[in-house]
């Protein structure tokens, strides 16, 4: 067995449905507002070796994305632990709050810093990001002038070029026009199949999972149904879903 890169133990995440408290509301309605708690993830544990690719399957609303966010450190789990063993981690997401009035170049620097990279690291990668995004002269124009396609191209390039040890991917992304879609898909595959990188993918596409993953975690309504190799889990999952 190789080195463990990611260890999740007994993860529980609950949501409070009564979102927040409002003074006006509580003045108007003096009786206590009922708290409606939803348990999104109930006791999931798994560990993943370095370089392995884990696919997470489950129907909509079964807590897959919630779990990814929690592994990335955006959400606090209610109980349980996530141990990254010192690896850097990022959740691949489109557009980390672009600032509309700033140019693409400045937004690269800002987003990169938010993702935890130093100014020098970003500087080294900037040209590569610009080249990959195919924005050309638009890179020095404010982001508000971008079309939605250009917007997502830039966002994709930033997250794809600024790599981390562990990548969490919520649906394999492909953005932009047909040509860029192909290119971004290839880039994703390249990133995922790098043997030094540990990847967790959430996907509904059986094809993608079969092609990319080593192991599969199946969760249903927040509970772990199965955890094992593709051959073991996917047929049962497909049977369950049909």
């Amino acid at each position: 067995m190789g080195e463990i890169a990611l260890e999740v133990k007994d993860l529980y995440i609950t949501y409070n449905c009564m979102k927040n408290y409002s003074i006006k509301k509580s003045l108007l309605r003096l009786k206590k507002v009922e708290k409606n708690r939803i348990e999104a993830v109930k006791g999931v544990s798994f560990s993943l070796e370095k370089g392995k690719i884990l696919g997470i399957v489950g129907k909509n609303g079964s807590g897959k994305s919630t779990m990814l966010k929690s592994i990335a450190g955006i959400f606090a789990p209610d109980s349980g632990t996530v141990d990254l063993h010192g690896n850097t981690i990022s959740l691949m997401s489109i557009g980390v709050g672009f600032s509309n009035e700033l140019t693409g170049r400045e937004n690269i620097a800002l987003s990169g810093m938010l993702l935890g990279f130093s100014a020098e690291q970003i500087k080294d990668k900037t040209e590569e990001i610009i080249r990959f995004s195919e924005l050309g002269k638009f890179i020095d124009m404010p982001v508000r002038t971008y079309s939605s396609g250009m917007h997502s191209k830039l966002a994709f390039s930033i997250t794809a070029i600024l790599e981390t040890d562990i990548m969490l991917i919520d649906e394999v992304l492909s953005v932009g026009d047909a040509k860029f879609k192909k290119k971004s898909l290839n880039k994703m595959k390249e990133l995922i199949s790098d043997t030094n990188r540990t990847v967790v993918i959430v996907s509904h596409s059986m094809d993608t999972l079969k092609k990319l993953c080593d192991t599969i975690l199946w969760i249903n309504d927040g509970e772990m149904m199965m955890y094992g190799s593709i051959e073991d889990v996917l047929p049962k999952y497909e049977e369950f879903m049909s």
Binding site: E101, L102, M113, G116
Partner: peptide
């Protein structure tokens, strides 16, 4: 320490976008 550079950059960016509009 880690986020000071970001803070400076983001503050500058916000000032800049305020004047740009």
């Amino acid at each position: 320490k880690k986020y000071l550079a970001y803070s400076g950059k983001a503050a500058k960016a916000q000032l800049k976008s305020e004047v740009a509009s």
